[in-house]
Simulated scan of single mutants.
Amino acid sequence: MTMNTMELDGYTAVIRYNPETDEFRGEIQGLNGGADFYGRTPDELRREFRASLDFFLETCAKHGISPKKQASGKFVVRLSPTLHAQAVTAAQAAGISLNALVERAVHHELEAG
């Protein structure tokens, strides 16, 4: 199964292709609930993304719910002790905190993707 993303109006969906059913499935990320959609062609998938997103946003508005899940900015990262020690050393050598090093690494990875 391959994975890709599609964007619409500031929302991102992870797209997976299932060769067994010859169908794409999209799942909109970062929502206060779930919204997915299906299509056999990219054009059909785009149309279904629009329909699914519009329905989700209308439902949220109707019930007074914020559509996007809010991120706190905090998360726990588990590393091997060796990698943790290397990261601490690298942060100290750069004169920054370990949090700043991790933030820099995540930003770099997102830019590269």
Results as ranks from 00 to 15, higher is better:
residue 26 G to C: 03
residue 106 V to P: 03
residue 80 S to T: 14
residue 43 D to E: 15
residue 80 S to H: 10
residue 37 F to C: 05
residue 105 A to V: 08
residue 16 R to L: 06
residue 66 S to I: 08
residue 38 Y to L: 08
residue 93 A to W: 00
residue 42 P to Q: 14
residue 39 G to W: 03
residue 83 L to T: 11
residue 18 N to F: 09
residue 113 G to H: 14
residue 44 E to M: 06
residue 86 Q to F: 00
residue 42 P to W: 12
residue 33 G to F: 06
residue 2 T to C: 04
residue 67 P to D: 02
residue 88 V to E: 12
residue 48 E to L: 05
residue 80 S to E: 14
residue 80 S to N: 11
residue 13 A to I: 05
residue 41 T to N: 08
residue 55 F to T: 12
residue 97 S to L: 07
residue 28 I to Q: 02
residue 40 R to H: 13
residue 110 L to D: 10
residue 1 M to L: 03
residue 17 Y to T: 02
residue 52 S to P: 06
residue 74 K to R: 15
residue 111 E to Q: 15
residue 105 A to R: 11
residue 62 K to S: 13
residue 88 V to M: 07
residue 48 E to T: 12
residue 15 I to G: 10
residue 43 D to R: 14
residue 85 A to P: 05
residue 113 G to F: 13
residue 105 A to P: 05
residue 81 P to D: 08
residue 62 K to A: 15
residue 65 I to M: 09
residue 10 G to C: 12
residue 30 G to P: 00
residue 87 A to R: 01
residue 99 N to T: 10
residue 3 M to V: 11
residue 56 F to G: 02
residue 105 A to Y: 06
residue 35 A to W: 00
residue 62 K to I: 00
residue 37 F to G: 00
residue 84 H to L: 13
residue 42 P to R: 12
residue 96 I to Y: 07
residue 107 H to V: 13
residue 106 V to E: 05
residue 60 C to H: 09
residue 102 V to A: 11
residue 76 V to S: 09
residue 94 A to R: 12
residue 41 T to G: 07
residue 84 H to W: 10
residue 43 D to F: 11
residue 32 N to T: 09
residue 38 Y to P: 00
residue 27 E to L: 01
residue 41 T to V: 07
residue 83 L to D: 11
residue 110 L to S: 12
residue 63 H to S: 06
residue 57 L to H: 10
residue 66 S to K: 15
residue 21 T to L: 02
residue 36 D to N: 12
residue 75 F to P: 08
residue 8 L to H: 14
residue 87 A to K: 02
residue 109 E to S: 15
residue 16 R to F: 01
residue 5 T to K: 13
residue 71 A to Y: 15
residue 53 L to N: 12
residue 31 L to H: 01
residue 88 V to G: 06
residue 10 G to K: 12
residue 24 F to P: 00
residue 28 I to V: 10
residue 61 A to E: 13
residue 44 E to K: 10
residue 37 F to M: 03
residue 11 Y to F: 15
residue 68 K to I: 02
residue 87 A to I: 02
residue 92 Q to P: 00
residue 21 T to M: 04
residue 23 E to C: 09
residue 111 E to M: 13
residue 46 R to W: 04
residue 98 L to Y: 04
residue 41 T to S: 11
residue 85 A to Y: 01
residue 46 R to L: 03
residue 75 F to S: 12
residue 41 T to H: 08
residue 70 Q to N: 09
residue 25 R to V: 05
residue 44 E to T: 08
residue 66 S to H: 11
residue 28 I to K: 02
residue 33 G to H: 07
residue 88 V to N: 06
residue 4 N to Q: 13
residue 26 G to D: 03
residue 72 S to P: 03
residue 108 H to D: 15
residue 66 S to C: 06
residue 9 D to A: 15
residue 18 N to V: 07
residue 60 C to L: 11
residue 58 E to A: 11
residue 100 A to S: 10
residue 108 H to M: 12
residue 103 E to P: 02
residue 23 E to I: 04
residue 54 D to S: 10
residue 13 A to S: 09
residue 18 N to P: 02
residue 51 A to Q: 09
residue 58 E to L: 07
residue 112 A to G: 11
residue 92 Q to E: 13
residue 61 A to F: 06
